[in-house]
Amino acid sequence: MLNQNLPFMILATLSVFSALMVVLSRKPVHSVLYLIFCFFTIGGHYLLLNAQFLFAVHIIVYAGAIMVLFLFTLMFINLNKELEPHKSNLVKAAATIVAGTLLLVMVSTVTDTGNIFPTQVSQNEVGTVAVLGKKLYGDYVLPFELTSILLLAAMVGAVMIGKKNTES
């Protein structure tokens, strides 16, 4: 039993560790690198869950696009030269208490629900490109097209915000 759990346990430990390091490391560039590592471990979880399509999209979108954007912005505004001033100890303690309470609430909610989950894992093949493609272009074709409009609007918005204001 433990041996079969081992891939999940290793990946979960790495995910939690790298997520913690994102929050705790002092230099922003280190945070970004730990975040990339965290995204790769989450991609590993997708592979374990037989979601090959999501694995590919996750690696391309997060590790390929979003993280490059983060690193590019970080180097563009060159934050590594000075370390950020840290919050006061009171705020830190309050943040830890709030986060811990949230964790407690969510864990107790999950444990209170009891056995509502199906014990038998479904044998349906859902994570492949064929199944998801049929779903995406069938039932979900309108949200899919709206997503393309959203991405176009975001692209235009980013360019408009980012360009220098020359008139004034």
Binding site: V57, Q123, G127, K135, L150, A154
Partner: peptide, 26 residues
């Protein structure tokens, strides 16, 4: 989504990723 054998959850993840990409760009 894998537990229930229902593809709708993974489609939703796909949309969340698209929205996250737009959010980060802006």
């Amino acid at each position: 989504s894998t537990l229930h054998g229902e593809a709708g959850g993974q489609v939703m993840v796909f949309f969340i990723m698209a929205v996250a990409a737009a959010e980060v760009a802006v």
